[in-house]
Design a protein around this nucleic acid. Structure first.
Lengths: 319, 319
DNA sequence: CTGAAAGCGCTTACAG
DNA sequence: CTGAAAGCGCTTACAG
């Protein structure tokens, strides 16, 4: 039996007689044969791998549970299609170069871009490279070059701020996320959607990172600027856990003195005291959709609209 | 100029004249040439990739910061050697099969095994496969087949329990980790090293997972069994955060009524209230060493002793 | 349906 | 030092 026939069986069994098919399948099971992946890649010019590129300084990967949910969700969605995920870190300039060389070496069939920042050169280069790319969250400045999947950040933020107002809070402030990310920008826009003309500059502090520590710092500053605040919408649960620490240190009761709303519904939301009212972001679904869009693009399907997935308000004890 | 010469330049520049070397290097820069990785892999029978295999049900990857530190550390150490990390999940039986097929397809040059459990069939199969393997933590039941890197769990636990005793605590109990993992077993052994003959069965509760929730449940049980306990060593920071929640619910002050010691010195240790006294585990170093050992094994170096890295007691407000 | 053959893009002894 | 050639292990038109 020829190599060709075996190969045809392994690749779907088209144009193979039932007898040959059965014989090959038996032999495969008996010998435990598995095709060499490099040879297959070379012949098909498909690597069977997808890059998961994290363009973020160290700090955040260590801290933010959101990344891990996304990472797992993408890994799993890819595995279901017999694809594998390669984890690439692109925090520093050197790592950056490595990533680019990697893409040029056709090491992967596509690229999942996570946590892009305004002005991030990797986004432009990825889009220029012609390699299929899908970003998590709209890549600021490249909204039209790069396909993306995101939660409805703005709508979610709006729901949260409306909730705080409905609870009878008078001075609703916000700890915004870094404004060089679409999540940071959109969630702040949602805040303004509700607060509207009443908004005062001092009611808003943008954190200098998505971390617990940055949330704590921003909250401390907000308390200085607006000592009589009675509510704060914090743009992520992790930052909100920092805000809770700052409030506790300032002797403010939550939710008695200050209502605190988060965003993400990540596991930290239920690990802090009191558990956070937050906005659920369907991150597992985001990961799956990213993989769907990427595969469609790899398969040659043209234009795909950016996907925006709905969020949901989750009320707990902090508001 | 022949393909062979170019290839020689790209692979170290041995046996190439200075002129040819310079010419090729210039051309490479100008054209942005990068060797096709599949072709190279096929020729060298090296994939340039290493599998990071997580044999753990979903829950834990989502929760435990330790994994992410290890994941990042390994990714980075590999990248420095121009290797890439493939993330494989092997929680379910189906994923399991996929991983094995993957290894047989020579998709990777080696395997980093994380979070192995007693009786985990993947460990045996990995060891049998002949592929270079390094495990994080001693793989129970395969201590001699599989190379490993671990922190000094037992010594660290001992230091913590000694610390609790030195603080004048009379009834030092422990929430142990699951006893099908080496970390769980070793840390409990360290507890017994100190408590020795005074140990009572009711003073020990093994959690049914390394999670916040499992820690909370175990602590609640411990409080029922030993209402007058005044100290508890919890085998991980994440579980300790759950224990703090249980203690708070039971109206016990920490450290006033009960001293709480954790293990890991992960970021949750400083995010909880009060910040945890804990045992620092050099996880970044563990990741680096795993990669070192794996590369040595890939390079054909024989027997390597299991590495055990020192831990350090970190005293904070919880004891 | 099946086999022989070309080709995927590299690396690496082998002569020279 | 350098080029020609074989070979890595697959897939896939192409005849038959």
């Amino acid at each position: 039996m020829s190599r060709g026939t075996v190969s045809r069986v392994l690749n779907g069994g088209r144009y193979v007689s039932t007898a040959a098919l059965a014989a090959v399948q038996r032999a495969v099971v008996e010998t435990g044969y598995v095709a060499n992946s490099s040879a297959r890649s070379l012949a098909t010019s498909r690597s069977g791998a997808v890059a998961f590129v994290l363009t973020e300084p160290q700090e955040r990967l260590f801290e933010d549970p959101n990344f891990h949910v996304l990472l797992r969700s993408c890994t799993q969605a890819l595995a279901e299609r017999d694809l594998v995920l390669m984890l690439l870190l692109a925090g520093s300039a050197a790592e950056h170069q490595r990533v680019l060389r990697f893409l040029r070496g056709r090491h992967v069939d596509g690229m999942l871009l996570v946590s892009t920042h305004l002005g991030d050169p990797l986004v432009a280069e990825a889009s220029r490279s012609g390699l299929p790319v899908v970003a998590a969250g709209r890549p600021l400045g490249h909204e039209h070059d790069v396909r993306s999947v995101a939660a409805d950040d703005r709508g979610g933020a709006r729901a949260m701020v409306e909730h705080l107002v409905a609870r009878g809070r008078r001075r609703v402030t916000t700890v915004a996320g870094p404004q060089d990310t679409s999540g940071g920008v959109e969630r702040l826009a949602g805040y303004f959607d509700v607060v509207g003309r009443r908004a005062r500059a001092v009611d808003v502090v943008a954190a200098d990172g998505w971390t617990h520590a940055a949330g704590e710092r921003a909250m401390a500053r907000l308390l200085e600027q607006v000592p009589d605040l009675d509510a704060v919408f914090v743009a992520s649960d992790l930052m909100a856990s920092g805000a809770l620490a700052a409030l506790r240190r300032a002797g403010r009761e939550v939710p008695g003195d200050v209502a605190v709303g988060g965003f993400d519904d990540s596991r930290v939301a239920v690990q802090v005291d009191p558990p956070l009212t937050t906005v659920r972001q369907p991150l597992v679904e985001v990961g799956r959709r990213m993989v769907d869009l990427l595969l469609a693009q790899i398969a040659g399907e043209a234009e795909v609209e950016p996907a925006v997935l709905p969020t949901e308000l989750v009320v707990r004890a902090s508001t």
